[in-house]
Amino acid sequence: MKPAPFEYHAPESLPEALALLSELGDEAKVLAGGQSLIPVLALRLTVFANLVDIGRIAELAGIERRNGSLRIGATTTEAAVGADAQVASSVPLLARATPLIGHFQIRNRGTLGGSIAHADPAAEYPAVALTLDATMEVASPGGRREIAAGDFFDGLWSTTMAPDEMLTAVRFPVWGGRCGFGVEEFARRHGDFAMAGATVALEVDEADKVKRCAIGLIGLGSTPLRAGGAESAAVGSSAREIDAAEIGRRAVDGLESVPADLHGSASYRRRVGAEMVSRAWAAASKEACGE
């Protein structure tokens, strides 16, 4: 339970961190809150000769409203996200997903960027980012670029960032109009990663017809997923007439790589997933219609 020896680097600026990462290459790993990385190091599931701690880079933390989106710096802690009034009012889905992450002691150190870069399919923030079509801001010594959430998660714990790239911030679009949001998940013990879960964002017009919606699936594949078929089926229908259970069934229809382990079979998880979508949809729809 003790990590193997490593060299520790604590750069105080982003360029310094990026230079270190490109110079050290495969031998180096970013250390943010450490709440996923340190357990993996302690269990010696992986070994790195160098850790680059990004926790002392001031410019990477903070929450800022920019035009139509809320920009959250990568090292902003999950606790800070959960306590922020702007997050609660402009990206309610993110605020509501936060208390479902682990325990408060974990959220005090775990970071938004770490959770999204870690790309666990059962984690809350990656699913919220995908549901809201967030934009990932990444940087390397070669420059900066943006990656749409839809192009970011490409496999179990894997993203389309290049090895010398770092996630610097995530921009979450702010939904206006008559909106509602829901997040639901099921875990065997409070604070555990969910066995299955769902995130829903929904906007209705004056006649309560669904104008746009997004359904995210947690723990039902090797990445967070969107239930595109169920989304397009709902758009244009009256939110008050949509059967939430039917949306749930549709959302898990055709899922191909639902995980299975001793905690639950794929078919069990699929059914739990359908129920979570149904509940999240019902909550979001109720909120959007102002009931």
């Binding site: 450490g34 340190i38 302690a42 325990h103 408060f104 150190r109």
Partner: peptide, 21 residues
């Protein structure tokens, strides 16, 4: 949670932080 301590006032796992941090 047995290792919980406060760092700058925040309760955290002391097994999931390095002393250098």
């Amino acid at each position: 949670g047995a290792c919980t301590v406060m760092v700058d006032g925040a309760a955290v796992r002391s097994c999931l932080a390095f002393a250098v941090q």
